[in-house]
Design a protein around this nucleic acid. Structure first.
Lengths: 223, 223
DNA sequence: ATTATCTATAGATCTATAGATAATGC
DNA sequence: ATTATCTATAGATCTATAGATAATGC
């Protein structure tokens, strides 16, 4: 505020202008796509939200599909990388005796923390991912960006559960990711269902429960 | 086939024609909405799939939003009713001692069976619901149609888990429904992730695991 | 006489491209 | 000399409505 008030553009380099415009467009697109999906958002909607002309989106992103993919890709590396680190750190600490719950804490809590710490933009990205995940084309995007971390998690789970079949591990992961995505979506349904007792935005309530809950689920599969 | 081959319309009453057209339109819309969402489908797409004119959709359904809601509503009563029955039956059998796993079997298995037995149309509806569930407006539709069954389930779970807080029960349900919706979506992600070991369409594999998995999760919340 | 279905069309949008303009960059 | 941004516009669609047509229903 204190420095932006003098003029709208205070001699920024082209590279800076470019970077800033791209960020603003991605933020606006992320916000809108998270609420209305790929087809529920027009390029005009995005341009209007940023305050630029529609053609600028074509200039930077070619077309709508590309813009959508760039929204996905921008933060995917960050969340993926953080979780990968957390899993590797856990692996090193746990040595020969990794536990399901330990691995899930590293995987899930790290992610939930990121959205809480990251503020509104990251929360929008979370909802964007959740929306996309229940979609055939969206799931294909997930393959590209998230397979490495997920397979890392699966690898640790297999060592934690040497008597479980691979199918059990994968179906368990399927349940975990469903629950996580339902959390990230923040639809407000749990709020109304619980009569206001729970809140969609309350990721800390989820964090308190999800790893323990899912770990118990995994263990139950081989009784 | 044997009687439809003589002519396209073998003297049906207007009521029959109406009913049949409505069903065909709903089937086509359900199929398309499940894959592309509300905004990813045009009325032309639906009309073309049925082989009628776009205006007929307006004639029967007013507008696109209404058509969408009718698709949701058509089968919601069936699945809701079946699960309600199953829960009541379980309640009667279990008497004073309902278990989490018993209630979840009634709730989840009954639903999964319906999609498997119902064939392609029901599988489309399942994917439709899954897609809709990760959406703010979709979640609001769920309130209307599914709150009674869900609250019935929650009531039994509370009696099965008298020492758990209501928050624990609701968050547990939140995880359950996330996992179920991820199943109904059938995105193919688990297939690729598992290298072909698991299949999105394999609801029986899910049925074998989900109730037990989730029940253990619930129990773990109060340690 | 009613109603299922189609024809014609208005009016609004949407995506995408070509080309102009106005800055920054050496 | 390059590039960020805008103007103008083509061409395709989309939703929705008014009104015509061709069946069924008493």
């Amino acid at each position: 505020m204190s420095d932006g008030s003098t003029a709208k553009r205070v001699s920024r380099s082209k590279a800076e202008m470019r970077a800033e415009s791209i960020e603003q467009i991605l933020d606006a697109a992320e916000y809108l796509f998270s609420r209305n999906g790929l087809h529920g958002v027009t390029l005009r909607d995005v341009a209007k939200r940023v305050g630029v002309h529609t053609t600028l989106l074509h200039y930077y992103f070619e077309d709508k599909q590309r813009l959508f993919e760039m929204v996905f890709a921008r933060r995917a590396g960050v969340t993926s990388g953080r979780r990968m680190e957390a899993l590797e750190k856990y692996e090193a600490e746990a040595g020969d005796r990794p536990t399901v719950e330990g691995a899930l804490h590293a995987f899930l809590d790290t992610d939930l923390d990121l959205y809480v710490e990251g503020g509104e933009a990251w929360m929008n990205y979370a909802a964007f991912c959740a929306r996309v995940s229940n979609t055939v084309e969206g799931a294909a995007l997930m393959d590209v960006h998230f397979d490495p971390v997920v397979l890392k998690l699966v690898g640790i789970l297999k060592r934690a559960l040497p008597d479980h079949s691979d199918e059990d591990i994968f179906w368990g992961y399927h349940f975990v990711t469903g629950s996580l995505m339902n959390t990230l979506a923040r639809t407000g349904r749990i709020d109304r269902l619980s009569g206001g007792l729970c809140h969609s935005d309350d990721f800390s309530a989820v964090k308190q429960r999800i790893a323990r809950f899912m770990a118990a689920g995994f263990l139950s599969l081989k009784a």
